[in-house]
Amino acid sequence: MREPSDEELMSAIAAGDEAAFRALCQRYAVRAVAFARRFVGNGSDAEDIAQEALLRVWRAAPRWRPDAAFGTWFYRIVINLCLNVRRRLPFFGLDVAGERADPAPDALAVMERQEEDRALLAAVAALPERQRVAILLTYWEGFSNAHAAEILGTSVSGVETLLVRARRSLRLSLGAAQKEGQGDDT
């Protein structure tokens, strides 16, 4: 049987269908948690953000207009909630790196990878908000530049400019971190 599309689920949710809402939650909770955790750097806040974003979807469903894809609208809600939390709280970098899904050959390699991941996440966390959102949407969520532009309400070239600046900053900060690491080794 064909899975209902997000838009079909939203039509059912707009009519008060709780089962449709739960199906949508199954589909989007992990994406919301993942995005929020990488944006705010804090697991418990990410959970709160995901829950609140989904509740907003439920509350606003009767008013939802399918002008854009549901995912686009949903990410906008999540980003707005993340921005509110970020203004309230500092970034907690250590919570974000977590563990890799794929097993590493040995403990040292795992530690090195985790260290690299932490450095990258800290560098991403230090980016200005717009650049950070552009990086998270394109590299973490795997959206095209066009889709990221739609979510951010800007043009594709605007997203490209954000990505150019973000990657320039990442190259600089990660290069500096690597040099520091090499300096520590010697």
Binding site: V30, A34, A101
Partner: peptide
Amino acid sequence: AARLASEADMRPA
């Protein structure tokens, strides 16, 4: 980093 911690996201989700 994009492949990071899928399990870590599944539990809170």
